[in-house]
Structures are given as C-alpha cells and as structure tokens.
C-alpha cells in the first residue's frame, strides 16, 4: 500500500479507485462500538484527570457574525486562565479578520490562534479567494488554519478537485498547521467520511476536523470513531501522524469524556494529547469548569458563577 500511496493522486481515476477501494464502514458496527464505549464509567481521580485533559484540548471557538474585538479579547483571557486553577486551553478559533486581535491578546501565553478560512462555512468561492483568505490569516499571525472542503465536488465524485484545493491551501499555510473540515453532516455516509478523511490526509492535512458547527448533525461519536480509525490506519501505512478534531455539538463534560475514551480505545494514547486531539467548542468549557468545581468542592456548581461567553 505504501508504494502506491505516493502516486494515488496522479489522476482523478487513480484517486477515485483508491478511495473507493477503501474497505466499507459497517454502520451498525460503528454505531454500536461508539455507543458501547460511551457507557464507560469514568469517576473520581480518573474523571479529574480527564476533565483537565479535555480542558487542555479545547479549541475555544467563537464564529458568529456578531463577533467583536472585545468579545475575542474576553475569550482569550478566559482561554489563558479558565479559572479555578484549570489548565489553559489549546487554542482559540476565530474568523480571519479577528486573528490579529487574538494574536495580540495571547502573545506569550502558549495558547495558539486558529483561524477558519477558505470561505468558511460553505466553502463556496473560487480557489483564488480561498488561497488569499488563508494567506491573509497566516500573515495576521494564525498558527493553525481550519479550512473547509468543497462538499459539492466531493459528493459529485470530483475527488481530484478537492485534493488539489487542499494541496493549494496547504501551500498557502506555510508553517501554520492545516486542519481540514470534512463537514460530515453533509457527507451522508460513514463510507464517505472514511474517504474524505483519507483524501484530506493524502493531500497533506495536519488535522482532520468533523464539522463547521453550522450544520446539524455535527460531531457524533461514530463519525469521530471512523475518523480516528482513518488516522490510525494512515499512520500504519505512511508513518505520518494526523490529528483529529471533533467540533460542534459537544456541550457537556460527559460528551467530552466519551470522546476521550474513544480516542484511547481507537487510535491509542499517542493521540491523547492536545497536539493530536482537539475539541472544538464554546459552551463546553463552562461545563467542564463546573464539573471540575463539583469535584473540588463536592457541591453541584451553577452557571451564575462562571463567565458567560
């Protein structure tokens, strides 16, 4: 397999043949496996560790039309010091025009700045605009770029177009990490999720990400499972490790811990660090902090005592 991987993208036909040659996903099996792993009981000290790990994996995100520089600064402050002695989050994720604000607010903190680009969330624009969008975000100081794939092209079978777009955006990223958003809610089957994962990884993605958060369903456990299997198999085949970022719809500590269990059981604990696994979320952080406080104080926490975001 390793020998053929290099020239898989030689033409549309070879790429198509490779992606359709991937083994199909057993949908019932994947659902069942994810559901079973979701029932794992994580308590007391293991839970405390899991919560802190989850906090350190959060990509604290604000992607609203109503975002302001002030809101981004407030979020950055929270990202560095979530409160109660909790560790800092992995990154903040903003629109490209607010990258400069986030970079300024996070200088020296060790929290990375991620920016969505390529006409997020629909991706419906020309390649020139996508590449420029990416280059501007990188120039403004973004450490990580979250791009969206062209789902229209993917679903109509034009895999080479999707591939070449990712390659072009990756080139525009320079040193910045590239996360490729598959928008699994629009891909309709797990087979497509597996193909899109491989496609993105072959094209040079550093991370594969489930969703924009603008489409429902967003990150579900079985979809993350399929993607984790893909990065595991990809590393076995090529030796290159790719990260996974489920995003959208992860709101509770329970959801976050289920994802961590999934990572550990599917890809292995090599992925169980903020460098290789991220949780894209906004309201999740408050729930993690509330659960963290419950463990330290022994009383259920209330949202009145946490910053709103």
């Amino acid at each position: 397999m390793t020998t053929s991987l290099a020239d898989v993208a030689a033409s549309g036909a070879t790429l198509r043949a490779f992606l359709h040659g991937l083994p199909g996903v057993d949908r019932v099996g994947a659902d069942q496996r994810a559901a079973t792993l979701g029932t794992r009981s994580i308590k007391t000290s293991a839970k405390a560790t899991a919560i802190d790990l989850a906090i350190s994996m959060v990509d604290l995100t604000t992607l609203e039309g109503a975002d302001t520089a002030g809101k981004v600064r407030a979020m950055c402050t929270k990202a560095v010091r979530p409160g109660g002695g909790a560790p800092k989050v992995a990154a903040v994720c903003v629109y490209p025009d607010l990258v400069a604000v986030a970079v300024e607010a996070l200088r020296g903190s060790g929290v990375r700045v991620a920016s969505v680009a390529t006409a997020f969330p629909s991706g419906r624009t020309s390649l020139e605009v996508k590449v420029t969008d990416t280059a501007l975000a990188v120039a403004a100081g973004a450490d990580e770029i979250d791009m969206v794939i062209d789902r229209g092209a993917f679903l109509s079978g034009d895999y080479l177009k999707v591939y070449e777009e990712i390659v072009a955006v990756k080139a525009a990223c320079g040193q910045a990490h590239l996360k490729v958003i598959l928008e699994t809610g629009e891909l309709s089957t797990y087979d497509n999720v597996r193909r899109a994962s491989w496609l993105a990884m072959l094209a040079g993605a550093d991370f594969i990400k489930t969703s924009t958060g603008k489409v429902s369903p967003a990150a579900t456990l079985p979809v993350t499972l399929v993607m984790l299997e893909a990065v595991r198999d990809f590393r076995d085949a090529t030796g290159r490790q790719v990260g996974v970022k489920p995003a959208g719809g992860i709101r509770t500590t329970k959801d976050a811990i289920k994802h961590l269990v999934l990572v550990n059981e599917t890809a292995g604990d090599d992925w169980l660090t903020p460098e290789w696994f991220r949780l894209g979320a906004s309201s999740l952080l408050n729930d993690l902090l509330m659960q963290r406080q419950k463990l330290t104080t022994g009383r259920y926490a209330g949202p009145d005592y946490f910053t709103l975001d």
Partner: peptide, 9 residues
Amino acid sequence: PWLAAHMDV
C-alpha cells in the same frame, strides 16, 4: 443535602 448545596438552586 445535594439540593441544599447546589449552586444553581
């Protein structure tokens, strides 16, 4: 006691 201690009550 849990309800009495709950910060959201």
